[in-house]
């Protein structure tokens, strides 16, 4: 049963969720185009299809809760508030980038937003999330840590070590698994003996829940509730959001391991048009209003691309800066 939207959030916030999802999609589409043009190089992992997870989850957190993610993290950074211009400039490798062009697509970071990084070793962010949560507890901060990761990461040792540790030390970590069912080309049933990922937390006595990651409101409600529980109890919780990426693992992956039928089924569940339909049906936004939002997002991303193009390259001296404090 679908929740009536106005039961959940005021109208302007409901509309804002759509705007953030549309901005994320638009950003990724432009990234793909700029990669084809050779302006973005290296690895590029796009988030298209998974927007409801980043947008719904971020809305359910406090602004200074820590967020950590993996290497498919453009949307998480932008939704948290990172300037799309500086994110695009980072992807272009320019000096104006979020990390001065030293990180790239997989290593976005903005401490002013408590966005504590994109990590490109699968499972690397688990222990760091636990450590950040420990620092928050030690310093008596009213802050939890949201740790995002994919279904592929749950077979790393750090996953198990960190779940055990967070529960043992009673640390405020909200683990959010974005299960898009594929670790590159390996489907989850071919890598996990227990493919129902949220059930894997029982070994650590961490309560968990599975949520429809294509439904931004379902994600928002689950994360909002869980985040408050984590804050209140100081103990970890776990959410598995089932979702789908509409593109390959990275730009070099044509995604031939997935059937057209499967792809079509998930496309019919695309979080953007489905959520737009609900906004219209419940009279929360008009088609004209959504059109205006979409145009604004498009213009914003085009502006980000222009900013990145015009920005200077890093100075050669940057090679040796920031190795040591």
């Amino acid at each position: 049963m679908e929740t009536r939207l106005r039961m959940v959030l005021p109208d302007h916030e409901l509309v804002r969720l759509y705007e953030q999802m549309f901005l994320s999609r638009e950003f990724e589409d432009h990234c793909a185009e700029q990669y084809t043009k050779g302006n973005i190089t290296g690895f590029l992992h796009l988030y298209s299809g998974q927007e409801a997870v980043a947008v719904g989850a971020t809305a359910g957190l406090h602004k200074d809760d820590y967020i950590l993610s993996a290497y498919r993290e453009h949307a998480q950074a932008i939704v948290r508030g990172a300037d799309p211009k500086r994110v695009m400039a980072e992807l272009f490798g320019k000096a104006t980038g979020l990390c001065k062009g030293k990180g790239g697509s997989m290593h976005l970071f903005d401490p002013s937003l408590s966005f504590m990084g994109g990590y490109a070793i699968v499972g690397g962010q688990f222990p760091i999330s636990v450590g950040l949560a420990f620092s928050s507890k030690y310093r008596n901060e009213d802050r939890i840590t949201a740790c995002f990761f994919g279904d592929g990461a749950v077979n790393q040792g750090t996953f198990h070590e960190s779940l055990n540790w967070a529960q043992l030390w009673e640390l405020p970590v909200l683990f959010i698994c974005e299960n898009n069912f594929y670790g590159i080309g390996t489907e989850v049933h071919r890598s996990s003996a227990l493919a129902s990922i949220h059930r894997r937390t029982c070994g650590y006595d961490i309560p968990s829940e599975k949520v429809d990651g294509m439904d931004v409101i379902a994600v928002y409600k689950a994360v909002k509730y869980a985040a408050e529980k984590v804050r209140e109890t100081g103990r970890p919780l776990f959410i598995e959001a089932t979702t789908y990426r509409f593109r390959g693992h990275s730009m070099s992956d044509p995604g031939k391991y997935r059937s057209a039928a499967e792809h079509e089924l998930w496309k019919s569940r695309d979080p953007l048009p489905n959520y737009a339909k609900r906004l219209l049906e419940e009279g929360i936004a008009t088609r004209e209003a959504l059109d205006a939002i979409e145009a604004r997002c498009r213009a914003g991303v085009e502006e980000a691309v222009a900013f990145a193009e015009e920005s200077p390259w890093p100075e050669d001296s940057e090679v040796y800066s920031d190795i040591y404090v």
Binding site: L98, K100, K102, G103, H107, F109, G117
Partner: peptide
Amino acid sequence: HYMFGGQA
């Protein structure tokens, strides 16, 4: 420290 542009 390096890959996040000196911000951490």
